[in-house]
């Protein structure tokens, strides 16, 4: 019977380990996304390096926007297309307007396509790093400063940068109540 007990112990360890593994998949997936550009996730903390060199080539970037769950927001890029020099920092902004009658809290999630080029799109500053608070009727300019990495492969076509704006007022209210 001792051998049965040791089998049970070993198997229970496997069960617990596999349960843990399902949670470990979350960071593993994030790392995997970073490496492969899965889903076009971009850096979510500001790029502060200075190892990007200016190169004499250009790439076209298209800016698009979405509002999640039909929230009462106007959210559009100020400029829909920019031809940028690789390695040179640029500024642009999105415009957001609160069309509702109350103050809203929002957050934006970025996505780059083709996803495999997401890692070369470096944001020095971005409104998507922080949550926004916007009053009823207020119009806000939301700025981005970015640079395209000189490691970007050549002959890649256009890059599309998309931001989806989420209204998270309910979540913010709930957590402030706690």
């Amino acid at each position: 019977m001792a051998s049965v007990r040791s089998t049970i112990t070993k198997l229970s360890i496997v069960v617990v380990a596999m349960y843990g593994f399902s949670y470990a998949l979350v960071p593993i997936y994030d790392t995997f996304c970073e490496i492969t550009g899965l889903n076009g996730k971009t850096n979510d903390v500001a790029y502060t390096g200075n190892d990007i060199k200016k190169e004499n080539r250009f790439v076209k970037i298209k800016f698009i926007s979405n509002v999640a769950n039909s929230a009462p927001l106007y959210f559009e890029p100020a400029v829909t297309e920019m031809t940028v020099q690789v390695g040179k920092p640029y500024n642009t902004h999105y415009v957001m307007k609160n069309n509702s009658s109350k103050q809203l809290h929002t957050t934006a999630s970025p996505s780059v396509t083709p996803g495999k080029y997401a890692e070369y799109f470096k944001k020095i500053e971005c409104f998507c790093f922080n949550q926004q608070t916007i009053n009823s009727g207020e119009i806000k300019d939301l700025g981005i400063q970015f640079v395209v990495d000189d490691d970007l492969p050549t002959n890649i076509g256009d890059i599309v940068l998309s931001y989806t704006m989420f209204d998270i007022t309910n979540n913010v209210m709930e957590s402030s109540k706690l």
């Binding site: 349960y19 399902s22 949670y23 979350v26 999640a68 998270i168 979540n171």
Partner: peptide, 25 residues
């Protein structure tokens, strides 16, 4: 156990404010 993990994450996303699966968080 992996299924158990996945559905537990769904549950906490819905009721405990985690955001394993929502882009907003």
């Amino acid at each position: 156990p992996v299924l158990a993990g996945a559905i537990t994450m769904l549950l906490t996303d819905r009721f405990y404010g985690t955001s394993f699966f929502t882009a907003a968080g």
